[in-house]
Amino acid sequence: MEYFLELFAGGLTRGSIYALIALGYTMVYGIIELINFAHGEIYMIGAFTALIVSSVLAMSGMSGVSALVLASIVAVVYASAYGFTVEKIAYKPLRRAPRLSPLISAIGMSIFLQNYVLLAQTPDFLPFPNLLPELPLPEAFGNIIGSTELIILLTTAVIMGGLTLVIKFTKMGKAMRATAQDRDMAMLVGINVNRVISNTFVIGSALAAVGGILIASHVGRVNFFIGFIAGIKAFTAAVLGGIGSIPGAVLGGLVLGLTESFATGYVSSDYEDVFAFALLIVILILRPTGLLGRAAAPKV
């Protein structure tokens, strides 16, 4: 039973991070119907930036929560700046191009960013300092869920709550929802669609950076390639929940995290990534609209 609960907690932790990254995919897809292949790389750049900043801070004698907060802020700002720039360069000029063009451009961007980090930094894994504070947990509780895991869960819950409020109640959130429903119509009623799209990339990238910092503190190491697998898994989560749907991304992330955790815990850990990909294929075949997605009638 304790093993089960441990796997459950592990799955939730994993899943909540997938959900954070999946939100970026789902929001972008909801608005411009593009699978932003470079999103995983934004997450990686977020994690890398946090690593660099915190290491520099640590060497100049600053550590603990204040270093963590500062490194996180810098990482979030940088990831957002990268997301913003990628959209401006690689996707914006292709708004009216055939569907495959922005997708190929996105794949190119992803390969570019990976190799940019590889060349600018290192091909090796770097150790990521665990900056998350140690919470005093009661012992029985601590056997099931670690302090880091609890912090991850709480942080993602707070962020998702905040995001929901932003999208539901702010002017920007309303503009985003309107643009997602009908871009041309939104433009006609005076919404600055370009700004909405930029905002979407910025928010999605910021969330990915938070996910990057959390997972890097959890796993303890970072390299240029971590964005690829994480990106595909987060995309799987987005599709699983129904792409374009924000609660769907959260649900999809959790389902995927739990599936992986139980499959590696009870079946075999060699095939960890295979489970995610297999789940993606099965879901797309059986229910292409995902768990919470709506079926769209073909437009003729």
Partner: peptide, 9 residues
């Protein structure tokens, strides 16, 4: 690979 990526974009 860097060049591949940029060429695609």
């Amino acid at each position: 690979m860097l060049i591949f990526g940029s060429v695609m974009v």
